[in-house]
Nucleic acid binder design. Structure first.
Lengths: 349, 349
DNA sequence: TTGTAAGCGTTATCAC
DNA sequence: GTGATAACGCTTACAA
């Protein structure tokens, strides 16, 4: 097995090959003016012949720019975050940057700080943080408040000094609930996601808005906290609701998994969906369309969220032609619209 | 907004602060001998006072090592690959390396080459490739056969010259089928995944092995190619089987999604699971446990696969103390065992 | 239009 | 033990 580190050609090798100075080669590479077409051509052939590739390390050293972004996300094996990460990755690459993804589980909050430090050491030029459930400790990232390190939070709490890209959860909750109301439902239970997630709180707000604007009285018994986003939590929540004797004709679940769990539990108790109980989910995960019945749900454009986050961040790390850093302006809040996907889990009454 | 690129302290700043030469600082940082405890202490305080962090760019430039690995994967929003990626990420980080993840969809094979080139340009020291469905074009990556660039394939075809880390799909297929046979089934249909995926072929081989070693005659009518891994394909495959009049009492589906689709279709046609038809899936995706009935399936340790792949790769990029590259030896095949998870979708007859 | 010199922040080599 | 000095491969002045 030969040595991995074969001696690669340098800019000087290209120079001698083309019979010019290494500086001229640099000019050609960086597309500077003041090079004869002929010389340019010679240099290009030399580059091709030697299959020369500029060293990004050397470039980074002198320019102090790594052309890379960091993404710290909650568990990436969650479809939801994976989608956003995939979107961010593609957008980043499109603009000639690289993305370092660190997936750190909520269970290990200490890791988060370590990861962050790591990325900063690596001199990423900006950071995306997609850990909605954890309070974002900006101080951890920006120890010196005078240095403005570009940060974009994905789907996180609205924090001072940080630009946020998220889905309009309030609107999503509003739409889901309104749809149910339009279909004639007024006793609508809501399966609330874990409230340390801002998105759960916002969806609940949307639910309340919808009731209020339709003149439906809110009933505290209808609000069931699931504690978690999963199927098991959905089953348990519905069980509690039923056993408490709460009467309802529809459920708005804060996630598709909750909805699926709820449907399972309803069935197990001999209730039909949607004939007896209508259900609306949230997320539009891939299996939502294939359940029985196919689930009416609120689609979140997570890929678009990831893409937008990356682009916003890249704008913030951009430089003006004169080499000065472009002012990032004040932090913004970008809310992407959700879309209600109507399938068969809701019946009119 | 202040400039992002604040002037960071260099090794020389630390040197003057500590009243030594920058070289001594370097010695201290790298734990070289021949430094008095007293000087070492002074340097350390200076480092802390200035909160100095060595520049990875400069280090990379001189050592020609980037301390980073690349991972090119099929769509990362697929739980399956995301799991492996998460495992690889953690293992990589544990050993002080960084991971560049590129998620490239099967639909865009041209992108794959571009991504690869990108990572190579970035001077990753090794590459993991997790795109089982695409024939691995090693030549693309190793244009010069004399240079041995460390590569590990995850769950890919067995290719000459490339170390592979995968799950033992043949064993998995064998176990699933054997379990069904033990439960008294002999007419076992198999829903075959897309055959451009080696894993599908191997699972089918395992199925055949199991029939053979139990003395059950193979019936070509039982072998139904699903064409794809998804729910829809599972529905369609079962529909075809039923409409062809094939009689069977059990199904071995090559993925949980296929199994779930199959169950849905069976139900839609008035067949009960597992009373009429037993079903075994493959993957143990999160929802498998929550279906009705909870799915008996073959668990694949994808996280472990990712971890192992990273560790094998890191071993291959390792250096000996004398600074020479350690010989990677001949390519190996690492097969991780699957585990049959018994739940309620199989009945005895 | 082109070439020369300096320097980015580190580590390795060789004196002292 | 410690400190100059020279790389690493590139880009940005400045000179010719």
């Amino acid at each position: 097995m030969a040595d991995v580190r074969v001696k690669r050609p340098t800019i000087r090798d290209v120079a001698t090959e083309a019979g010019v100075s290494h500086q001229t080669v640099s000019r050609v590479i960086n597309g500077h003016a003041n090079v004869t077409a002929a010389t340019r051509e010679r240099v290009h052939t030399a580059i091709r012949d030697l299959s020369y590739v500029p060293s990004p390390m050397a470039r980074a050293l002198i320019s102090n720019r790594t052309h890379s972004l960091g993404l710290v996300t909650a568990d990436i094996s969650d479809w939801f975050f994976a989608e956003a990460a995939a979107g961010a990755e593609v957008a980043t690459r499109k603009r000639g940057y690289y993305l370092m993804i660190a997936s750190v589980e909520d269970a290990a909050p200490d890791d988060a700080a370590a990861y962050l430090r790591l990325m900063l050491e690596r001199r990423v030029e900006g950071l995306m943080i997609a850990r909605p459930s954890l309070p974002l400790a900006v101080e951890q990232i920006r120890p010196d408040p005078t240095t403005a390190f570009p940060i974009v939070a994905i789907g996180s709490a609205r924090l001072a000094g940080v630009t946020v890209v998220d889905v309009d959860n309030r609107q999503g909750g509003f739409d889901a609930t309104s749809f149910l109301i339009e279909r004639g439902h007024s006793r609508i239970a809501v399966l609330v996601g874990p409230e340390k997630w801002p998105s759960a709180v916002e969806r609940l707000d949307g639910y309340r808005d919808a009731l209020r604007s339709a003149g439906v009285r809110e009933d505290a018994a209808m609000i069931e906290r699931a504690g978690d986003w999963g199927l098991g939590a959905g089953q348990a929540a519905v069980a509690r609701l039923l056993e408490a004797g709460t009467e309802f004709t529809a459920i708005f679940a804060h996630s598709d998994l909750l909805a699926l769990g709820a449907i399972g539990e309803l069935r197990a108790r001999g209730l039909r969906v949607p004939e007896d109980i209508s259900v609306v989910g949230y997320d539009d995960i891939p299996i939502a369309a294939f359940g029985t019945p196919p689930l009416t749900t609120v689609r979140q454009p997570m890929r678009a969220v990831g893409e937008l986050a990356a682009n916003v961040l890249l704008d913030a790390v951009g430089w003006d032609v004169d080499g000065r850093h472009r002012d990032g302006g004040s932090p913004e809040l970008h809310l992407l619209p959700t879309k209600l996907v109507v399938r068969d889990s809701v019946a009119s009454r």
